[in-house]
C-alpha cells in the first residue's frame, strides 16, 4: 500500500453569514480515493461547507488546498481550473429544466472539449448508462422521478471525468431502496474510476455503508469534534454528541431510562 495522498486539505476554516459564525476552526484532510462524509445535525453548516469547497461561497477565514494549490487565495481563473476537475451533484439534481437530459450532460462537454457532436452523443449515452438511465436522453428533468433526477445529476457531474465528485444529500427524499442503490452506485464509481468523493449527508445507513473518512460538525459547539472513519468513530470516540448522532440518540434514551 502506498501512503495516501492528500487531495483536499482544509485548514482553520471559519464559515459565517455576516456576523453570524456558523462553524469555526475546521481542519481536516480528504485523501485521494476517499469517500469522505461531511456529517452533522440539521443546520450545522454541512451544505455551506460544501459550497465553500466548490467555490460558491467564500470562507470568512482559513484556507482550502486542492493538491497543494490554495483554492480561495488564488484568482478566479485558478479556481475555475481546479473546478474543471470536480463535479457536483446538487440536492435536488439542479438539472437545467429547459434542456433534455442529453443536453444537460452535453453542455459541459461542448463547453470544454473539442469533441464532435457524434462523439458527445456517445459520451452522453455512456454516462447515462453508468447511472442506470440508458434511453432517457430525450426526457426533460420534469418528466422523470426525483431519484432519476439525482442519478441524472450524477451523470452530469461525471461528464468531464472529474477527479473529485461532490454529493449534496444524495439520499435525501428517496425511498430506502433507491437510497441504497444510489449508495451502491457511489461505491461502484469509486471502485472503477478511483474518484475522490465528498458526500454531505446525515443518513446513518449511507454513512456507515460508504464512508471511509468523515468529519463531524457539532452544531452546539460550533466547530468540528471528530474526523476519521465513521465506523471507527462509532467504536472509539467518547464524544457524547457524536455518539448521539451515530446511534440515532439511543444512548440518550438509555440514560434517561436509567435515571428515571
Amino acid at each position: 500500500m502506498t501512503e495516501p495522498e492528500a487531495h483536499i486539505t482544509v485548514r482553520h476554516l471559519t464559515m459565517a453569514y455576516g456576523d453570524f459564525v456558523l462553524m469555526r476552526d475546521l481542519t481536516f484532510t480528504v485523501d485521494r480515493g476517499d469517500i469522505f462524509i461531511i456529517m452533522g445535525g440539521s443546520g450545522c453548516g454541512k451544505s455551506t461547507l460544501m459550497s465553500i469547497l466548490v467555490g460558491l461561497k467564500a470562507p470568512a477565514q482559513g484556507q482550502v488546498f486542492y493538491g497543494g494549490v490554495d483554492f480561495w487565495g488564488g484568482d478566479p481563473p485558478t479556481r475555475d481550473r481546479i473546478l474543471r476537475r470536480a463535479g457536483v451533484m446538487y440536492q435536488s439534481g439542479a438539472l437545467w429544466s429547459s434542456m433534455t437530459l442529453a443536453e444537460n450532460i452535453a453542455l459541459p462537454l461542448e463547453t470544454y472539449t473539442d469533441l464532435s457532436p457524434a462523439r458527445i452523443r456517445e459520451v452522453v449515452k455512456l454516462k447515462l448508462a453508468l447511472v442506470g438511465m440508458a434511453g432517457f436522453e430525450e426526457y426533460y428533468p420534469s418528466e422523470i422521478s426525483g431519484g432519476m433526477q439525482k442519478r441524472a445529476g450524477i451523470a452530469r457531474a461525471m461528464a468531464l471525468d472529474p477527479e473529485i465528485l461532490f454529493f449534496d444529500e444524495p439520499s435525501a427524499g428517496l425511498d430506502p431502496v433507491s437510497a441504497r442503490r444510489l449508495d451502491d452506485l457511489i461505491l461502484e464509481l469509486r471502485e472503477s474510476l478511483g474518484t475522490t468523493m465528498v458526500v454531505v449527508t446525515h443518513e446513518l445507513a449511507s454513512i456507515f455503508a460508504i464512508g471511509t473518512n468523515s468529519v463531524f460538525l457539532d452544531v452546539s459547539k460550533r466547530t468540528m469534534t471528530a474526523t476519521g472513519n465513521p465506523n471507527q468513530l462509532l467504536a472509539e470516540s467518547r464524544d457524547p454528541n457524536l455518539h448521539l448522532f451515530l446511534t440515532r440518540g439511543e444512548i440518550l434514551d438509555n440514560r434517561i431510562g436509567k435515571d428515571g
Binding site: 459550497s51 475555475d80 457536483v88 438539472l95 437545467w96 429544466s97
Partner: peptide
Amino acid sequence: GTMQVNQEIDALKTLGI
C-alpha cells in the same frame, strides 16, 4: 429566479460556465 431556487445557477457556476 426559479433557476436560482433550483440551484441550476449554482450548477452553471461550478461547471465554470
